[in-house]
């Protein structure tokens, strides 16, 4: 643990016309920490994640990020070239649907290698070697390196997306319902994989999920969102085992065993 947060979100709001999708949200993310944002669909959690990544502009508030290359930057006013440079070199975004995070008409190896090439790698042999290492780390047969992801199962595609995100060794990873569209048996494998990689790489992660089991397994801390606001925040076991807010109690009681 270090004594400065990697990311500080303060009083952040995202409005779509009259609708406040995210309404005055504040939190810190510390290096090496996994933070889960839970809530039902429509609670604003995915909008919050997308605003942090810069896929959409917040209406108000601040997002301070401690960058490796730029020092502390205010993301809400950062110019696009630098924001995209950060997205290429320091961040990763895992989409719920792997098709949104992969190039389906390019090989698995190219999908992993592209992030390296985007960060400036120009040695084919090294790119290839790293892609092989990462396919292995996400439990994809290395012999499939030149196959197209559209020939992969949903679980494999999601693991390939994770390899593509992690290959550049990002400091901050944002995950939007990473196990969302998958069968339960496939989910378990993916979750374990994410859990292990996060621990091995010491990643800082924000994972958005409606699945409290995912939050329990991956996160040290939880934010509960309802109608764009954070209604409860705390340690994962505290929020799940002793929820204080009525909405948190509803969420927890709706699950068979989180």
């Amino acid at each position: 643990m270090t004594d400065a947060p990697l990311l500080s979100v303060h009083d952040l709001s995202v409005r779509f016309g009259a609708l406040a999708a995210v309404d005055g949200v504040s939190f810190d993310l510390w290096p090496g920490e996994v933070l889960a944002i839970v809530g039902e669909s429509g609670s604003g959690k995915t909008t919050l994640l997308r605003a942090i990544h810069g896929f959409l502009r917040p209406t108000a508030g601040s997002i301070r990020y401690r960058s490796d290359r730029f020092g502390e930057v205010e993301l809400t006013v950062l110019d696009e070239p630098r924001r995209r440079l950060l997205a290429r070199t320091e961040w990763g975004f895992v989409h719920q649907n792997p098709r949104d995070g992969l190039r389906l008409s390019h090989s698995a190896g190219a999908n992993v290698g592209e992030r390296l090439m985007a960060a400036g790698a120009r040695h084919w042999g090294n790119i290839r070697a790293q892609a092989l290492v990462w396919l292995d780390r996400v439990e994809i047969d290395q012999a499939r390196i030149d196959d197209l992801p559209r020939t992969f199962s949903g679980g494999m595609q999601q693991r390939l997306q994770i390899a593509r995100v992690l290959v550049i060794n990002p400091r901050l990873v944002l995950m939007d319902e990473p196990t969302g569209g998958l069968d339960v048996s496939v989910q378990a494998r993916l979750l374990d994989l994410i859990r292990r990689l996060v621990a091995e790489l010491g990643l800082s992660v924000i994972v958005v999920t409606h699945d409290l089991g995912v939050a329990r397994l991956l996160a040290q801390r939880i934010l509960v969102m309802q109608r764009g606001r954070v209604v409860e925040a705390g340690l994962t076991d505290q929020v799940l085992d002793d929820p204080q807010h009525p909405y948190s109690q509803l969420l927890v009681s709706s699950v068979l065993a989180a």
């Binding site: 696009e80 070239p81 995209r84 290429r88 190039r103 390019h106 090989s107 190896g109 190219a110 290698g113 592209e114 992030r115 390296l116 090439m117 985007a118 960060a119 400036g120 120009r122 084919w124 790119i127 290839r128 390196i145 030149d146």
Partner: peptide
């Protein structure tokens, strides 16, 4: 946008696959 920001990593993807 990619031209404006000189983000050309994707350009090498095709060459990468050719060699593969």
């Amino acid at each position: 946008r990619l031209h404006a920001l000189a983000e050309y990593g994707i350009m090498h993807v095709k060459l990468y696959e050719d060699i593969a």
